[in-house]
Design a protein around this nucleic acid. Structure first.
Length: 465
RNA sequence: GGCGCGGUAGCCAAGUGGUAAGGCACGGGUCUGCAAAACCUGUAUUCACCGGUUCGAAUCCGGUCCGCGCCUCCA
């Protein structure tokens, strides 16, 4: 079965058919680098990682572009407050962003264009829109997109424009546009912008938000490409505006498949600083959780389903991952350098079932169930002693295969702990003498050092708690 | 008000017409010096509620209640 993805544009699952055979070109709305990213942001980036990895797993070549918005109201305001140049200010957060992606084992995109590096392309695109009559400059030197000229506006979000009334927010708009729905392509320089501004045919100013995605996606992916993703909140107006600008300028369909992921909530509520349920990756690391555990949690729910983040869920992730590690560790103990042969019966269909689950609009829950079913059958076979070394090697290969998509199966090796090992030796001595009280006392000590001790037929084993 | 999503065991979560996956937690058992891990086993006669269609519905239709998101720059 081929890969089926839910397309927001049609509100249906559709079979993926790329512009170029076996090559997916995709664009993802990235962060505005004005602050550290929070786990809600990472939910979206994790979804995109899942998509990217699934595409590659299915054999596609992927060209993936994620933009960095490094100029907007927030970055300008904050940089001025901190007395830093815009560049200095945003660099801190873009670097932090990349570090977080790395820590979360999110694969790198092929391109990370920054808005400030593509002002020329945006000006060029805006000029094209003005020439074609889709945009107009206002008296103050801003440029707006003329909404009423783009008849298909609203086709993505299915919004009814007639219901859009000039409300309080619109009235506060400081810019001069002809119609309330018109959106800014170029914003004229204002005093609050400090030294941030670029020369343009319409005077000094800066690009609007939407235009950067159109300009940069076209530069790296062409005027029509396959997949565009983002958080569901970006659907309107951002993606709607992108479609309008791009299709008006080129006269071609912009994107084939639009994919949107739902939000993450914490304990059932929208994450907000005032509720005290706002977390960055670092916050969780500081509390002793691992990025791997967070990755597991963020991949716990279908991407179009609201994800309820809880610390209980993080604990459950830890336990589940331990079970996975236990299995891999048992297999590794068996292999002894033996090379992989055919898979045992119980692992025979894992890969195809896994693939089938993913093909159904990235059904990660089902994919995980496939993994755990294998774990269960495999543990049982290991208990019975019916697994050969070469089979164990083959199963490990399969796990490695699945991990190309999951990205959380591989455990970081437990580093040797000389204190724990010393106590372990003493305990073995006590056990030999059947001094159980002493042995138990020493085991408690090891436990306090953060290790779990398992006595196996082949001797004691230490595992990180 | 408009548009959209959802309500499945203590928690998380698949299943969208054929008789309730999976994970965590919990109870009993096997193994063990005791544990741990693993295995076996038990936990939803039922899928928010009320009607309807159907041989058959968690799944389709209508209604009700509840939760959430978006509605001009928040992933």
């Amino acid at each position: 079965m081929s890969l089926q993805l839910y397309n927001t544009l049609t509100r249906k699952n559709e079979r993926l058919e790329t512009c170029e055979p076996n090559h997916v070109r995709m664009y993802t709305c990235g962060p505005t680098v004005y602050d550290y990213a929070h786990i809600g942001n990472f939910r979206a980036y994790m979804f995109e990682d899942l998509l990217r990895r699934t595409l590659k797993f299915s054999g596609y070549k992927v060209t993936h572009v994620m933009n960095l918005t490094d100029v907007d109201d927030k970055t300008i305001r904050a940089s001025i407050e901190k007395n830093l140049s815009l560049k200095e200010y945003t660099t801190t957060y873009s670097q932090a962003f990349f570090e977080d992606l790395h820590i979360l084992n999110i694969e790198k995109a092929e391109f990370y264009p920054a808005a400030t590096g593509h002002i020329e392309e945006m000006i060029e695109l805006i000029s094209r829109l003005i020439e074609k009559g889709y945009a107009y400059p206002s008296d103050d030197g801003s440029v707006y997109f003329h909404l009423s000229t783009f008849k298909e506006y609203g086709k993505l979000s299915r919004i009814d424009l007639s219901g859009m009334q000039p409300g309080a927010r619109v009235a506060q708009d400081e810019y001069e546009k002809q119609h309330v729905g018109d959106f800014a392509l170029w914003k004229a320089w204002h005093e609050e912008d400090g030294d941030v501004g670029w020369d343009s045919p319409w005077g000094k100013g800066r690009p609007g938000w939407h235009i950067e995605c159109s300009a940069m996606s076209m530069k790296y992916l062409g005027e029509s490409f396959d997949i565009h993703t983002g958080g569901i909140d970006n659907m309107f107006p951002h993606h709607e505006d992108e479609i309008a600008q791009s299709e008006a300028a080129t006269g071609k369909p912009f994107v084939r498949y639009w994919m949107h992921c739902s939000h993450l909530v914490v304990d059932g509520k929208k994450m907000s600083k005032s509720l005290g349920n706002f977390y960055t990756l670092q916050d969780l690391l500081d509390r002793g959780y691992t990025s791997r555990e967070l990755r597991y949690v963020l991949m716990g729910t279908h991407y179009r389903q609201t994800l309820n983040f809880t610390f209980e869920g993080l604990e459950a992730a830890r336990a589940a991952l331990q079970r996975i590690d236990e299995f891999a560790s048992r297999l590794k103990d068996l292999v002894h350098g033996e090379s992989a042969s055919s898979l045992p019966d119980w692992a025979q269909h894992v890969r195809s079932e896994f693939s089938l689950a993913l093909n159904n609009d990235l059904n990660i829950s089902k994919a995980r169930a496939v993994l755990f079913d294998m774990l269960h059958a495999g543990h049982k076979a290991l208990d019975e002693g019916s697994v050969h070394a070469s089979e164990a090697a083959a199963v490990l290969d399969t796990i490695g295969d699945l991990d190309r998509v999951f990205g959380f199966l591989e455990a970081s090796p437990d580093e040797a702990d000389s204190d724990a090992i010393a106590i372990l030796k003493a305990r073995e001595e006590a056990r030999k003498n059947k001094d159980w009280a002493e042995a138990d006392r020493l085991r408690d000590q090891i436990t306090r050092l953060g290790w779990t001790l398992q006595d196996t037929p082949k001797g004691p084993k230490l595992k990180r708690k």
